Amino acid sequence: MKFLEYSGIEAINSALVFDTPECRVYGRVEPYSCKAAGADKKLYKQIENRYDQSNSPPDNEDGSAGSFRNIISPFGPLDQPASRRTLFYLIGTLNASFPDYDFSGVKPEQFRKEPSVSMVINSINATLLNHGKEKVVKDLQIWDSIDALIQLEDSDVYSYNPESDSDPNDEEGAGTLWSFNYFFFNRKLKRIIYVTMRGVSHGAPSEEGEDDFSDASDDENGVGHRRRGMRYDDYVAGEMDML
């Protein structure tokens, strides 16, 4: 997956990190091209080997299909290449967004296809407004920016609901009170917008580098802008052509 630079997203992401009386909120919007990089090719091969019907065990003696063929996914039957490709794109996006983690073992059922884009937009808007971030919705026009990147009306949206042992936001002592992960996916454009937010308890131990989050600390092991900047450099595919 290739991270796509877009100037309008930077101001939004800065506004999505803020304090409330109950918690500190970390949010970000990340656009990706589905163009595969080196590590993605390895992931794709892993998913194909795991779910491709030609690699599955033969039918059982009683005539029933092997267990692989009964897997239900939000992407459709996993014996179809398009379904496996969608799973690959979403896992690849997680790997790109959290480079210190390996999501290759994430199961299809940990994702959900949301009923509609508008319902997800309303849910995210409600979260922002409830936390006093009307600026993000109205002044920074988050959805106009996202629509310019991905054409929302032609997109599907998936959520990721990780198990505790595969959630980078739920490590022991992390203090995460709530979180969400959404992927807006336009198949025709082959682009994904990853939108995530989480609320962290003020009583949780400070994350390394957190104090420098807003001013791009030189601590390369931090979790603020410096780390994000390093990751961006790894995935940047150039300025997005909006034509």
Rank of each mutant, 00 (worst) to 15 (best):
K2C: 05
Y6E: 05
S7H: 11
N13V: 01
L16R: 08
V17S: 06
V25R: 08
E30H: 11
P31M: 06
A36E: 11
D40R: 04
D40W: 09
K41E: 13
K42Y: 11
R50C: 00
D52W: 12
D59Q: 07
D59K: 12
N60W: 11
D62N: 13
G63T: 07
F68R: 14
R69T: 02
S73C: 03
G76K: 05
D79R: 09
D79H: 12
F88H: 04
L90V: 00
L90P: 01
G92Y: 00
N95P: 01
F98L: 02
P99A: 04
P99V: 02
Y101V: 00
D102P: 01
D102F: 07
D102M: 04
S104H: 04
V106N: 02
V106P: 00
E109Q: 12
Q110E: 15
E114Y: 10
V117R: 07
I121G: 00
I121P: 01
I124E: 03
T127R: 13
N130M: 04
G132V: 06
G132K: 09
G132Y: 13
G132I: 09
K133L: 14
K138C: 03
D139M: 06
L140P: 02
Q141I: 02
Q141Y: 00
W143P: 00
W143R: 05
S145N: 12
S145P: 01
D147F: 09
A148R: 14
L149G: 02
L152E: 04
E153F: 04
D154R: 10
D156V: 06
V157K: 10
Y158P: 01
S159N: 03
S159V: 03
D165W: 14
E171P: 01
E171K: 10
T176Q: 15
T176H: 12
L177Q: 12
F183Y: 15
F183V: 03
R187W: 10
L189R: 11
R191F: 09
V195A: 05
M197E: 07
M197L: 14
R198M: 15
R198P: 01
G199R: 06
V200L: 13
H202C: 03
G203A: 10
A204M: 11
E208M: 09
E208K: 13
D211F: 10
F213D: 02
D218L: 14
N221W: 13
V223Y: 10
H225K: 15
H225M: 14
R226M: 13
G229W: 13
M230P: 00
R231I: 06
D233A: 08
V236P: 00
M240E: 09
M242Q: 09
